[in-house]
Design a binder for these strands. Sequence first.
DNA 1: AGATCCAACCAATTCGAAATTGGTTGAGAG
DNA 2: CTCTCAACCAATTTCGAATTGGTTGGATCT
Lengths: 233, 233
Amino acid sequence: MLAVDEVGSNRSVVTQLRAYLAQATLPEDGRLPPERDLSAALGVTRTELRKALGTLEAEGQIWRHVGKGTFMGNRPVDTLSDIAALSKRTNPAELMRARLIIEPEIARAAALTATPMHLAELRMCQARTREAATWRQYETWDTRLHRTVAEATQNTPLLGLFDMLNALRRAVTWGRLRSNPVKPEPDHHSFTEHETIITAIENRDMNGAAAAMRTHLQSVERNLLARQLSETD
Amino acid sequence: MLAVDEVGSNRSVVTQLRAYLAQATLPEDGRLPPERDLSAALGVTRTELRKALGTLEAEGQIWRHVGKGTFMGNRPVDTLSDIAALSKRTNPAELMRARLIIEPEIARAAALTATPMHLAELRMCQARTREAATWRQYETWDTRLHRTVAEATQNTPLLGLFDMLNALRRAVTWGRLRSNPVKPEPDHHSFTEHETIITAIENRDMNGAAAAMRTHLQSVERNLLARQLSETD
DNA sequence: AGATCCAACCAATTCGAAATTGGTTGAGAG
DNA sequence: CTCTCAACCAATTTCGAATTGGTTGGATCT
């Protein structure tokens, strides 16, 4: 093999690879064939191919991962959207701040898009929370009420965000069990607050819905703080 | 078989089951033994056991799922927080609506909590987008700029939500990534819009930051609609 | 010597057949 | 008519084998 060929071969394989990538029909996820197959297809050694792939990876044209394969485009960001990992890095106070920022806006959107079906379900959830015989039942219907608000936005990504917040809430407050065996009292603050939220949504009052949700979450937050303080008994 | 025994046996199995649940040491996830084992252990028919389990399920004491098993406690909500599943149920328009609802609020929060370090990084990202030689480079720094805004909230759950939206955006717009060879023009709308956002955050102008972010996303949306090829901001 | 190739190996990941599990049906016994 | 039992169904999990990018050490060729 001549020296000219050797020196040129490096560049040549990269060029050959670029040509292949420009021409090839890749699957939806941008994955390209395994190194072993690709090296055979291009008629080059795997070592040579890997050198070329290394060049393209350094340029950011492709990214690779053991066991997964080689892909075109930017390496996907190390997403922080993993509930388990996320719950270890945060705390209830921070989570409540996030809820105070997000959920009022969800309520605002819901006021614009809620259908009669959603309104009926909201009313039903509210009735069920009032009839609840135990705190467990109350929480079940309270959770469903809040989720119905999110569903009423008729926006799938928004509903996904809400679910993520909810999952986080469960994970973060995991150790805490409601030790109170009695049922919610009839004058529990949430009843009138839920009423205000639902009424605002019914009236298509976007600002009112957002404000009511904010008020509600703030009083929930106060309650949590109070309960934590009284946990000494 | 006497009628008294029939009626009584139903209740008796439920009672027996309650006793078992109260006494048994369940694994961490609250899963109880398979019906086939449990029916043998309690010395009752699977049909009988299933009737009793049905009662407890109706009461909300347990929940069941084919292939998974039977578990104590409330049925976990069908969390929609899985990127892959979510991206199949939504579309770019819906996603943009969600971004228009969420990201301005993130910018608003960032205006309150951003540190000098965050401001410096915002400025650096902005400079890099202006210097970008290719759309790919521009996109890299644009993405980092927006993420820095989210980091500036200093709120982990909020950052997680932002990452989830971002991951969704990649998944949804995957099919139509175009390799536009030219670089962003110097008068690209995003440059001045980014400037407005950063300035508002520097000035602790919460309403201004939210409004600027909303304006920015709206013009990105217009751009997307106009040319339906580039997913860049 | 000094690259380069090659085969084997490694660890992360994916794939797939088989086992497990709650849900359902139909024949037969009481 | 009701209950039991066995078989079957479909959703899910499990676990070993195959796949894949990354690495190493000896063989091969200038």
